[in-house]
C-alpha cells in the first residue's frame, strides 16, 4: 500500500493575496472511490477558497453522514470542522452560526443526508435563511450502503443493480426555491469552470446559499441507464449561462465578452456577471422554478445560478441578535448590572 500524497508541489504554484498556495487549503488524502465526483467538489471548494483568499481559520465545515459528509476531511485541513449526526448538520450549523456569526459556514451534505433523513432539518434551515453555504453532493444513490436509489433518483433511472427507480424524485433546487433560499444554483462535479464561480458567489452571499451538485457515483450509479452518470449529465445539461465572479476588492480589468445580460452585486460588494443564454431574470424566483420544470419536462438538466436575492435578510438580522460573536462578549456586556436587572424585574410586577 503506497497511497501517500507526496510533499512536493509545483515550484511555480501561485499564491493568493494572503501568500497562501492551494496546498494551504488542502485536506487529508481522500478515501473515497477513485473517480468519485465528490473529490472534484472538494477540489472546487479548495479552488474557490484559495481564489477568494479566505483565511482557513475563519471557515467552519459542517456535515452529516454519508460519502459526501466525509469529504470535509479532504479539504481545508486548517479549518474548523464538525461531522454531525445523519441529517442533522443544519441544527449544528444553526447553533454554531448563532454563537459565532463571524465565521464562514460551509455545509456539505448528500442526497440521502438532505433529501431523506435530513429533509425536515433542510426545510427549516432554508426558510430561516441562515447565513451559510449548503452544498449537496447529489449522486442519486446511497453509495455508502452499496448504491440503493435515493430520494433524488429520477423515475426510471437505474443504478448498477439494473432496477429502474419507480418513485418520483425530489428536486432539491425547486424545494429550496419554494422554501425561500436566497441563492440557488445547480452544477456538475465535472465542470469546475462553472462550479468554482458558483461556490465563490455562494461564499460571498449573505443568507442561505444552496448548491445542488450532481456528482456521479462511479461505483454504483455511473451506468448507461442512470440519469446521474458522467455521460448522461454531460449530454443532457444546459447552463442558464456563463457566470463570472468578481470579488469586491478586485478592480474590474477584464474585458467582458459582449452579450452579458445581467450583473448582480452581492451584499459584500462583489459582483456576479451573468452571460445568460435564456430569457428571464436571475432574481425571479417563480421564473427559476418554471425554468427548472420546463427543462425537466424536456429531459434536460438546468445548471448554473438559478436564483439570487442579494438584499435578503439573513437569520441574525431577522432575530436582531448582537452584532459580535458571543465569545467576544465580556462580563460588562453580558451582565447588565443590578440596577438594570431591577428595572427588568420591576417591569414584570
Amino acid at each position: 500500500m503506497t497511497y501517500i500524497r507526496p510533499q512536493f508541489r509545483h515550484p511555480n504554484l501561485p499564491a493568493n493575496e494572503l501568500g497562501f498556495t492551494r496546498k494551504d487549503y488542502e485536506g487529508a488524502l481522500s478515501t473515497l472511490c477513485a473517480g468519485c465526483g465528490h473529490d472534484s467538489v472538494s477540489a472546487a471548494i479548495i479552488e474557490a477558497c484559495f481564489e477568494l483568499a479566505i483565511e482557513p481559520h475563519r471557515v467552519a465545515k459542517v456535515s452529516g453522514i454519508g460519502c459526501s459528509s466525509k469529504t470535509p476531511t479532504y479539504f481545508l485541513g486548517n479549518s474548523h470542522g464538525f461531522n454531525s449526526v445523519h441529517g442533522r448538520m443544519p441544527s449544528v450549523a444553526t447553533g454554531a452560526n448563532l454563537a459565532n456569526r463571524e465565521m464562514i459556514y460551509v455545509g456539505v451534505s448528500g442526497d440521502g443526508d438532505t433529501a431523506s433523513i435530513g429533509l425536515g432539518q433542510f426545510a427549516h434551515v432554508t426558510r430561516r435563511n441562515l447565513n451559510m453555504v449548503y452544498i449537496v453532493e447529489n449522486n442519486g444513490c446511497y453509495g455508502l450502503t452499496k448504491g440503493q436509489d435515493s430520494a433524488t433518483a429520477d423515475v426510471g433511472s437505474a443504478s448498477k443493480k439494473g432496477e429502474p427507480n419507480p418513485y418520483e424524485a425530489i428536486d432539491l433546487c425547486s424545494l429550496a426555491l419554494q422554501l425561500g433560499a436566497t441563492y440557488v444554483g445547480r452544477s456538475f462535479s465535472g465542470d469546475k469552470a462553472q462550479l468554482v464561480p458558483l461556490i465563490k458567489g455562494a461564499l460571498a452571499h449573505s443568507g442561505f446559499a444552496f448548491i445542488d451538485v450532481i456528482s456521479p457515483c462511479v461505483t454504483f450509479n455511473d451506468t448507461p441507464q442512470s440519469t446521474k452518470s458522467y455521460d448522461f449529465v454531460r449530454e443532457h445539461r444546459e447552463a442558464t449561462g456563463k457566470l463570472d465572479f468578481v470579488p469586491m476588492r478586485k478592480e474590474i480589468t477584464a474585458d467582458y465578452e459582449p452579450g452579458y445580460t445581467q450583473e448582480v452585486t452581492l451584499h459584500d460588494g462583489s459582483v456576479i456577471h451573468l452571460y445568460k443564454t435564456g430569457q428571464g431574470s436571475v432574481r425571479d424566483r417563480d421564473g427559476a422554478l418554471s425554468a427548472i420544470r420546463e427543462h425537466k419536462r424536456a429531459g434536460r438538466i438546468l445548471t448554473g445560478l438559478l436564483y439570487v436575492d442579494p438584499d435578503s435578510q439573513e437569520f441574525h438580522r431577522t432575530l436582531g441578535t448582537v452584532k459580535t460573536a458571543l465569545r467576544n462578549l465580556d462580563v460588562a456586556e453580558l451582565c447588565p448590572g443590578n440596577k438594570i436587572l431591577d428595572n427588568i424585574n420591576n417591569s414584570f410586577r
Binding site: 500524497r5 507526496p6 508541489r9 509545483h10 473517480g35 462535479s189 465535472g190 469546475k192 462511479v218 458522467y230
Partner: peptide, 15 residues
C-alpha cells in the same frame, strides 16, 4: 477516460 477530473484533483504538482 470518462473525464471525471480525479487525476487533475489529486496530482500534487498540477501536471
Amino acid at each position: 477516460c470518462i473525464e471525471c477530473d480525479a487525476c487533475v484533483d489529486i496530482c500534487p504538482t498540477d501536471c
